[in-house]
Amino acid sequence: MKVKFFATYRQIANCKDFEIEAPADVLGLLKVLCRRWPEFSNKIVAPDGESLGADAIVLVNGRHIQHLDGVRTSLANGDTVTLLPLVAGG
């Protein structure tokens, strides 16, 4: 599966995207990312270790995970996950 980074998360990961074997769900993926880039730790996962960080946006195939199964949204190879910090514009 593919993981894409935008805004400051791109700087943390130091890449635009990368391929990874799909973990079971979004939380699993977030934990993998935190291990690989420790700077993500206090950003994409909340302090309880079980929910999404307050200022993170995660999309699975373009859908915000809040409208799917949250961090328990299951993942499969072929999915695209998009990660970015809270942003806005207009």
């Binding site: 935008f6 805004a7 400051t8």
Partner: peptide, 15 residues
Amino acid sequence: GTGMAAYGTQILMNI
């Protein structure tokens, strides 16, 4: 506080 200063409104393009 930080996002709009760093990237401006164009940060919306990708999302």
